[in-house]
């Protein structure tokens, strides 16, 4: 063992004084450099100087290296190139479609956000649904079809709303669709209440479906004069059917009084834009079984309700 060690030692370079002192000097130099850089800033000029020199050299080297680096790319078969063209075309089409539908997607997202907020506000579980068909004006009724039916827990006499306010109520439902009678319809009568004075009345549609369609509010107290800009909300029915309480309907825009009638007619502009209906929510009792995700009121709203 000792002999082997000795032989191994003999094979090693004898270390002379100068190379050892060189090592110490270099290690100290390294430590100095690290310290200087650690303290900060002192080596920036050196770094920049080296960069000024090495940067162009790297650029040139990259130019020399690029052809070699590209060698594997020359060996492509025709079929693999065709495959790539097909794949890229498909990707292109997909991306183009995405670009084209970005605005729609963004609006949809905003609507879902609004619906979730509405669920919290009215403290009701909502079934999200899209309007898929509008009834024609020739039928003289304002109805729409939504893509949620009994399978989603929707049945007749449920409140339909969106993130702006009350839309209407469900009048019939199939397995996968439901028909909604809009507020604007002549047959639609909703019990409402003015927010500032708690005066009650009935809101009736006028059978128009245009951007500036309005509702008539007939107040029970004929002597009361409504204020312009006052908000009407639903006062609700027994068991929340057909209308749940506290859903905003619209704003008072004009007040008419005629001596012929015992009550005053108040004109209400609905908050909902009926010409651009898309995502709506159907208020269902909690615990409803549904084939889709329900929009539930948020944690904070539930807490407030419990208080």
């Amino acid at each position: 063992m000792a002999m082997r060690e000795k032989r191994w030692r003999d094979r090693l370079e004898p270390v002379d004084r100068s190379s050892r002192s060189t090592l110490v000097a270099l290690v100290l130099a390294c430590a100095t450099l690290i310290t200087l850089d650690h303290v900060g800033g002192a080596l920036d000029p050196a770094r920049r100087a080296v960069g000024e020199f090495v940067g162009p050299a790297e650029d040139a080297a990259n130019g020399v290296v690029a052809p070699f680096e590209a060698v594997p790319r020359w060996f492509h078969t025709r079929s693999s190139l065709e495959d790539r063209v097909t794949a890229l075309k498909a990707e292109n089409a997909l991306l183009r479609q995405q670009v084209a539908t970005t605005a729609l997607d963004r609006n949809r997202l905003a609507e879902y956000d609004g619906l979730a907020a509405t669920a919290s506000t009215v403290r009701h579980t909502l079934v999200p649904a899209h309007v898929i068909a509008h009834g024609p004006a020739q039928s003289f009724s304002q109805t729409v079809t939504i893509d949620a039916g009994t399978a989603a827990g929707v049945h007749a006499d449920l409140t339909v709303l969106n993130n702006d306010g009350l839309v209407g109520r469900v009048i019939s439902a199939t397995r996968s669709t439901a028909t909604v009678l809009l507020l604007l319809d002549r047959d639609s009568v909703v019990g409402g209440r003015l927010g500032s004075s708690m005066e009650v009345g009935f809101l009736q549609g006028r059978g128009q479906l245009s951007g500036d369609a309005t509702l008539d509010l007939k107040l029970l107290d004929g002597a009361f004069i409504a204020n312009k800009g006052d908000t009407a909300v639903t006062f609700g029915s027994e068991d929340g059917a057909p209308y749940i309480a506290g859903v905003p309907i619209g704003k008072v825009t004009a007040v008419y009084s005629s001596p012929r009638e015992t009550s005053r007619r108040v004109e209400i502009k609905p908050f909902v834009d009926f010409t651009a209906l898309d995502l709506v929510g159907v208020a269902v009792p909690s615990g409803t079984r549904s084939d889709r995700g329900l929009v539930k009121p948020g944690q904070s709203a539930a807490k407030e309700a419990g208080r």
Binding site: L26, C30, A31, L33, D37, H38
Partner: peptide, 25 residues
Amino acid sequence: FTGGLLLDLAPPADHYAGRWALALV
């Protein structure tokens, strides 16, 4: 030391200068 310093100061490097120099010394 020279090579390490070059590695430490050449453009893509952003570590403390002297680390590669120390290792290569």
